[in-house]
Amino acid sequence: MIPGRFEYHRPKSLPEAVALLAKLGEDARPLAGGHSLIPMMKLRMATPEHLVDLAGIADLKGIRHEGGRIVIGAMTTQAELIASADLSAALPILKETALLIADPQVRYVGTLGGNVANGDPGNDMPAVMMALDATYQLAGEKGAREVAAREFYQGAYFTALEPGEMLAAISIPVPPAGHGAAYEKLKRKIGDYATAAAAVVLTKADGRIATCAIALTNVGDTPLLAEEAAHILTGTSADAASLARAIAAAEAITEPATDGRGTAAYRTKMAGIMLERALARALARAAG
């Protein structure tokens, strides 16, 4: 399968890329790793007339500390996330999640920015970013702005990105030392999207859950922040009754499609099971 014709652009800087995207308008798409976009182009489900390849922009690469945050360039690959000792120490959930995405070849090329900005509800990093309360740094002709991951997703493939805007970096507040986090994903095989998945980030104090954030993958048109479930657990000792109520609250906000991964009812139930497992692991990992 060969994609439709397009013109190829390879800007050297972020301002150059932004200017190109503004000039070319809706006929242009930014190209990151391309492992979502190129298959869509082969199927003619995407037919951009211009591709703006971001691979030549050094500023979009890398992982750096800024105050109490970690800022990751949008073009940083999943393999680079996995290999970063710094990230493994500060934000181990990112490596855990990246290892559940696709397969080794795709992880060498696929980027964090592409994963979160594409708006595909099957992608894994968006829920993790919502649980971590990350912020997306967007670049556009009118300047830079920040949008919370929790506000970014509006529908399947619909995000807060305005025409001509692109994602430049992901900024994540580093959770306190001793936090516990986990991502649990049910999939049929390596390389599959989630039947259902759950991200949990929590802290404990005196044996009780002090803070908690929960987000779910691929059980709705967008990743879902399970606010009520997190609220139910906060302040509890994660006793069986509280866990059951929280899991029921999380299941209640899911709206999965019935598809090859299972019926809607099954996928809702699996979201609950994934959450149960993610909570158990995050609690075991948390100090206090």
């Binding site: 399968m1 190829y8 391309g34 492992h35 190129i38 298959p39 082969k42 393999a79 397969d103 080794p104 070849q105 795709v106 060498y108 090329v109 390389g191």
Partner: peptide, 23 residues
């Protein structure tokens, strides 16, 4: 031809890549 099977894998700048999903 859909980046699943790996038959097109080549080594590119120190990475294994699926050459059916790169231009």
């Amino acid at each position: 031809d859909t980046s699943h099977c790996g038959a097109c894998t080549v080594d590119l700048d120190g990475k294994s890549v699926k050459s059916c999903t790169l231009f």
